[in-house]
Design a protein around this nucleic acid. Sequence first.
DNA 1: GGTTTATAGTTGCAAATGCAACAAAAATGA
DNA 2: TCATTTTTGTTGCATTTGCAACTATAAACC
Lengths: 147, 147
Amino acid sequence: MEKQAKNRDTVRAWAQLHRASRVQLEHVEAALRQAGLPPLNWYDVLIELYWAEDARMRQYELSDAVLLPKHGISRLIDRMEADGVVLRESCETDRRGAYICLTQPGEDLLRKMWRVYGPCIDATFSSKLTRAELRSLQKILPKLADR
Amino acid sequence: MEKQAKNRDTVRAWAQLHRASRVQLEHVEAALRQAGLPPLNWYDVLIELYWAEDARMRQYELSDAVLLPKHGISRLIDRMEADGVVLRESCETDRRGAYICLTQPGEDLLRKMWRVYGPCIDATFSSKLTRAELRSLQKILPKLADR
DNA sequence: GGTTTATAGTTGCAAATGCAACAAAAATGA
DNA sequence: TCATTTTTGTTGCATTTGCAACTATAAACC
């Protein structure tokens, strides 16, 4: 099992990548929960919609953007719609699906979450890295991020 | 929301960290599933036991090593024990808990999983990075990995 | 046009995860 | 010694996730 010296470093870096990600996410999720706010994937959806043309997207677009399988998105949107932060609006040009639209309460929630999320990134992430390290990550990580 | 130019880079790196991790893990999980093997966290437990003194550990040690809450470990071990790859062996010096021991079938499974897992790391991870980038990650990521 | 194939989304069911409450043993400390 | 607090682990319940099967519409192909 990963005994060859050649691979040692590789595997170590691999493991640290996932450990770093998990540790960081745990912090944020804990902070959100403690603030009585929904989990991070709500934020992911809200910010995508906020950035989108007309503040609306199809589910397959969201699915791609937030890396969630279609059935995962379907149910996430169910919950978010029930909470009033998004809205399903029928799509004229493709009657299989609908547009998911950001509502005003949704935008409010987005801001409220960011007020917890943002500082959390500072505290557990940026404050631990130098400017150069940050740039370095920015150069390297995208290579690992395409599916 | 994350509009200040100062933070732009930071947030981008943050997002890429998690995207990279997710994308990479998806590949491995898919490969394992396709090979009819259990999920990655089984491997994490097995390899920890394999490395451990006497090939056994307490649950709280595992919990710490694989970043799973204690109740998560408890049930994961339930499943793994039912499958025969680990064993709960009573602990004389502390009768609250038990030692979790690696069995021979467990070691076999470990090897079988590594034959899928290892090549997967090469294909989706190391092959996309230069030696220098790998070293760079190894220097930076640990800073983000302590709880 | 009409048939086939691909795409978008939903749903049922099983499995996994999170949270909180709990039990039991160990450590602490008066 | 005996009461209190901490640590270790389990369990019940609700929520979430994953997988597979399904519906409905759109696109592609003759």
